[in-house]
């Protein structure tokens, strides 16, 4: 059967069409993968890294510890003896000293019990009043770290750490150790200049 040029053309077109369809079906996906591979594919992270599990396991009640490979309750031992009871005494003197220092509510946290002319650190080391900053540093480590670098508190005299005039204010130059929060203060008067009038309500 003679095939007319017209039909040849049709067959060729149909063939091309099938080829294209086949390529879209099979080939294109690999092509897409290749393209995506070059572009940014989301980074794969270790599921551990995004786990919602807490990083450490707190004690549960009743608390137990491993001692010599044996799990023991606290009461196993602590029922056998009693610890010193630290009760705060009511003051008859120094009544003007009102502690507003949060949980830090014991005079002897800071003042030495036997030697009243000094302050005391947690390990019992006595420090003179002139070095009270080391006292604060025990409980306010991060602020102290900032203070050491001049990022908290204030430096007077010179901006040059190498200068003899360079003085960093101690904590108690700004904070009352008994009630360390900063009091709100009355602001000084605002600007009066005629070129800086307050904006009217509609203007904003």
């Amino acid at each position: 059967m003679p095939v007319s040029p017209r039909s040849k053309m049709r067959i060729a077109l149909a063939g091309l069409w099938f080829l294209l369809a086949g390529w879209f079906l099979l080939g294109s996906s690999t092509g897409r993968d290749a393209v995506l591979g070059e572009l940014q594919r989301a980074a794969r992270v270790d599921p551990e890294a995004i786990s919602s599990e807490p990083s450490r396991t707190p004690l549960t009640d009743p608390p137990r510890i491993l001692l010599g490979g044996v799990e023991q309750r606290c009461s196993d031992c602590h029922d056998l003896f009693s610890s010193r009871e630290p009760t705060p005494a009511t003051l008859r003197q120094h009544r003007e000293v009102v502690l507003d220092h949060g949980l830090n509510d014991r005079c002897y946290n800071c003042h030495s019990n036997p030697e009243r002319t000094t302050l005391v650190l947690r390990d019992g080391t006595e420090v003179p009043f002139g070095e009270s900053t080391s006292l604060c540093a025990q409980c306010h480590g991060t602020v102290f770290r900032d203070w050491e670098r001049g990022m908290h508190g204030k430096t007077l005299g010179s901006w040059d750490p190498a200068s003899p005039e360079f003085v960093r204010l101690e904590c108690v130059s700004c904070h009352d150790p008994h009630a360390p929060a900063f009091e709100a203060i009355v602001p000084l008067p605002g600007p009066a200049s005629r070129h800086a009038q307050p904006r009217s309500g509609s203007e904003r």
């Binding site: 204030k154 901006w159 040059d160």
Partner: peptide, 23 residues
């Protein structure tokens, strides 16, 4: 002369910091 700016010295809360960034 190495001294601090006046605004820094007056700041009661120590919010102002000044110095040589090359140090």
């Amino acid at each position: 002369e190495g001294r601090m700016p006046a605004c820094l010295e007056a700041c009661p809360v120590g919010a102002r910091k000044f110095g040589n960034v090359l140090d």
